[in-house]
Design a protein around this nucleic acid. Sequence first.
DNA 1: TCAACATATCAACATTTCATAAAATAATGA
DNA 2: TCATTATTTTATGAAATGTTGATATGTTGA
Lengths: 118, 118
Amino acid sequence: MVEPVEKAVPAPGGCGTAPAAQLGAGAREFLKALASEQRQQMLELFAGGIELTVGTVAERLGVGQSNASQQLALLRRGGLLTSRRDGKQVFYRIDSAAVDRSLAELRDYLHACCPPGD
Amino acid sequence: MVEPVEKAVPAPGGCGTAPAAQLGAGAREFLKALASEQRQQMLELFAGGIELTVGTVAERLGVGQSNASQQLALLRRGGLLTSRRDGKQVFYRIDSAAVDRSLAELRDYLHACCPPGD
DNA sequence: TCAACATATCAACATTTCATAAAATAATGA
DNA sequence: TCATTATTTTATGAAATGTTGATATGTTGA
């Protein structure tokens, strides 16, 4: 019996060549930040474009201030949130433009990896 | 001086209400699987729709067989890969339909969280 | 300047993930 | 049945990540 041979299906025209597709550092940080349920819940708190302080986020999620601060920092580093200081308070909000960019990069990356129309 | 008040910007019509948006278990597994550079590199090996065995993946990435098998399992669990057995060999390939679904769910989720046109 | 408030940072510990090696399981042909 | 091949599973130690509590830093008004 002949062993099955691994199949290489050529990429159809229009899909470009095999990747070259690699995720940039930005999209990688984005994925890392998003791959935590707590941080997803955190992100959801900002829905509708509102700004929140660290303390409020901590209260609403029922976690410690320090934990909230650190997780918010990861979301900021991952390009999901941005922040500004106003006096003693730091306000975080969603960075929609950056999110759109990372999402587009992820989409392009996955499309480059995936055969079309599975 | 009055402390700044946290701003709640109402969601414009057409964006639906505040989320309700939560990621399903599928999209969460998807993100987790993708949030590893080694697993990204693994996924890239399958570009163009080819099928590969565990052993081949291990060789090409220069990792151990057991490590490859476990990482492939995570990619499969995350809906990025699917597999079939043919005799002694198990062939993995990208599950484009599942990837598209998770990507769409992620997009919808993030759009639900994000104010439009930042 | 100082105390109060808000946050960021640090260090330690807890938990999870990662990679390895061995063992177990699945499939095959002699 | 058995040896070989391919993969999955298991157990373990190391590494990474998550959480906590304390400390450091930044801002403010008295």
